Simulated assay, not measured.
Amino acid sequence: MGKPVKILIVEDEMLIAANISLQLTTLGYEVTGIIPRGEEAIVHIKENKPDILLMDINLKGKLNGIETVKEIQKSFSISVIYLTANADDDHFNRAKATNPAAFISKPFKKLDLQRAIELVTNQLKSTENAELNNLEQGKSDTFILSDCIFVRHHEKMVKVNINDILYIEAERNYCRIYSKEKEYLLVMTLKDISVKLPQKHFIRVHRSYVVNLSQINEVATSHIVIGRKAIPLSKSFKEELLKRLQTI
Rank of each mutant, 00 (worst) to 15 (best):
K139Y: 10
S140I: 12
S140W: 08
S140K: 10
S140P: 14
S140G: 11
S140M: 09
D141L: 06
T142W: 07
T142D: 01
F143K: 04
F143G: 01
F143R: 01
I144N: 02
I144R: 00
L145S: 14
L145H: 06
L145T: 07
S146I: 11
S146Y: 11
S146N: 12
S146M: 11
D147S: 14
C148W: 08
F150I: 06
F150P: 11
F150Y: 10
V151P: 09
V151W: 02
V151T: 02
R152N: 11
R152C: 10
R152M: 12
H153E: 04
H153Y: 13
H154K: 14
H154F: 10
H154S: 08
H154Y: 12
E155K: 07
E155P: 05
K156I: 05
V158K: 03
V158F: 05
V158M: 09
K159C: 15
K159N: 15
V160W: 10
N161E: 12
N161A: 14
N161W: 10
N161Q: 12
N163L: 12
N163I: 11
D164F: 07
D164Y: 06
D164P: 10
D164L: 06
I165F: 09
L166K: 03
L166I: 02
L166E: 02
Y167K: 03
Y167M: 05
Y167D: 02
Y167I: 04
I168V: 07
I168K: 01
I168M: 04
I168F: 06
E169R: 11
E169V: 07
A170H: 01
A170W: 01
A170L: 03
A170G: 07
E171H: 04
E171G: 02
E171P: 00
R172G: 11
R172Q: 14
R172F: 15
R172Y: 14
R172L: 15
N173L: 12
Y174M: 04
C175A: 05
C175N: 01
C175T: 03
C175P: 13
R176D: 04
I177V: 08
Y178K: 12
S179K: 00
S179P: 09
S179T: 05
K180H: 09
K180Y: 03
E181R: 05
E181S: 08
K182S: 08
Y184K: 01
Y184Q: 01
L185Y: 02
L185H: 00
L185G: 01
L186W: 01
L186R: 00
L186A: 02
V187N: 12
V187A: 08
V187L: 10
V187C: 13
V187P: 14
M188V: 12
M188W: 15
M188P: 13
T189K: 05
T189N: 03
L190I: 03
L190W: 03
L190D: 01
L190V: 00
K191E: 14
K191P: 13
D192C: 15
D192H: 14
D192W: 13
D192E: 15
D192G: 15
I193T: 07
S194C: 10
S194P: 13
S194Q: 09
